[in-house]
Amino acid sequence: MRSAPAAPLLPRRSKTADPEGRRTEERRTDVVLRPAAVAMAFIAPEQPHEPIAVPGVALAADDVLVAIEMSTICGSDVHTVHGRRSAPAPLVLGHESVGRVIAIGSAGVDAADGTPVRIGDRVVWSVTVSCGRCDRCTTGLTQKCRELGKYGHERIAPHRELTGGFASHAQLRRGTTIVRVPETLPAAVLAPASCATATAWAAVQRGAAGRDLSGMRVRVYGAGLVGLSAAAIAESQGAIVDVADPNPLRRAAAERFGAVSAEAIPAAVHPETVHPETVHPEPEIVIEASGHAVAQAAADVAVGGTVVLVGSVFPADPVPLDAESLVRRMITITGIHNYTGADLADAVSFLAVRGRAYPFAEVVGTVHPLVDLDAALRAASAPDAPLRVGIIPR
């Protein structure tokens, strides 16, 4: 499946609303795609995806059209296709992608660095779309915008089919953070930046709270890609990191992402692998990236420490907490869900420089063509699945 360059036609005018709700005219640009773009529509759990041909798009004045180079399958995509996560079907899943700009609306758009996006730019983009005006956006919670949109999470609508990563193209709209990425970094490194790496960056920064991490002890629960990325980010900033995970292969992988020996993981997690004399002192920061060790994370952290919850993004039983212990130890417990545009830009900068010291290029185990999306999702659902499975349009 090959996509030809977009062929812009004459702009047309359409009605829209300005921030005050007044009706205004907006220039839209019709872009014909030959051959047509293809999007894979999720219809219902455990059902095959259905391909949708999209012969063209109407770009709003500040829209950007991207030809996708690679997308990767996130755990949330797997949960959705197996019915463990609700979704407004039909929709195009996928929110971890890298691609190249092939068309831009008439008004133009700025990238995260403040310079104009150009045709030919290689980019990643935020999973969230934020208004930038509401009380949450203006106080820095753009990922919780009151008018929030999310790529890979929205129902297909007329002229709004290219809204997820499991497609040949993506139509990016106003309020999306767009970050240019180096030509020299592999797509397998860059695609997950839009979810796992940026989320991990946000978690580490929330835990650090402006402090220098040099010599600080950090514990990460969960050696999925978010946990491993958090380990690498923290270690690159001078922290001493250990990673807890029940899977011995994942624990071994953690060592390559900057964590100490798996034998130093707390005995409460997997006592069969631990010698008491090797257990680390209490960590000042604990990042819970698994969703299964919240109580343990709160019990582990040192006096005055911070627990960052990032893995609890699925329904689970309530977690009992010893409130007296939290008060007496003066513990901070905070949560991170998604990330800001600045986090995504910083995550890309990390991957481009210090991140090259870690094996991010190896996290994508297999790559499938877009037409074989269902087979790729089966591979991502297997017990021995790689950290990521890749999808390429061609």
Rank of each mutant, 00 (worst) to 15 (best):
I104H: 02
N247C: 01
V66D: 03
T176I: 08
G355C: 08
V307W: 05
F314C: 01
A200L: 05
A61F: 06
I43T: 15
A58F: 14
G75S: 04
A208P: 05
A193V: 09
S229W: 12
E282D: 06
A6Y: 02
R173S: 09
D62K: 12
H95T: 05
M216Q: 15
G140I: 09
G305E: 02
L309I: 09
S229D: 12
T366Y: 08
R28D: 01
C195M: 04
P192E: 05
M216T: 14
I102M: 09
T16F: 14
A223F: 06
T306Y: 07
R28Q: 03
T128D: 04
S168T: 15
A244I: 06
V92H: 12
V301T: 06
T163A: 07
L228F: 08
G165I: 06
V348A: 00
R28M: 13
L65C: 03
R356C: 10
A385S: 11
G108N: 10
S312R: 12
E277S: 15
P283S: 08
L93M: 07
A107M: 03
R217T: 03
I336R: 02
A293V: 01
A230T: 01
P8K: 11
P369M: 13
H337E: 13
V389M: 07
H159G: 15
Q205F: 01
S325F: 15
G94K: 07
I392G: 01
T278R: 15
E272L: 06
L190K: 09
E324M: 13
L93I: 06
S214M: 15
R356N: 06
P5G: 07
Q143S: 09
P51T: 04
I178Q: 01
R23H: 08
I391V: 04
G120M: 10
R206H: 12
G120S: 01
A268T: 12
A4K: 09
V301K: 05
G390D: 06
Y358Q: 11
D300G: 07
S312L: 14
I73W: 10
A157K: 13
E284I: 09
Q171A: 08
R378E: 14
G304C: 02
G210V: 06
L309K: 07
A200Q: 01
R13F: 15
P320Y: 09
G21Y: 09
T72R: 03
I104M: 02
D300Q: 09
S130K: 00
T197G: 09
G291F: 10
V218F: 00
G210K: 08
C74W: 08
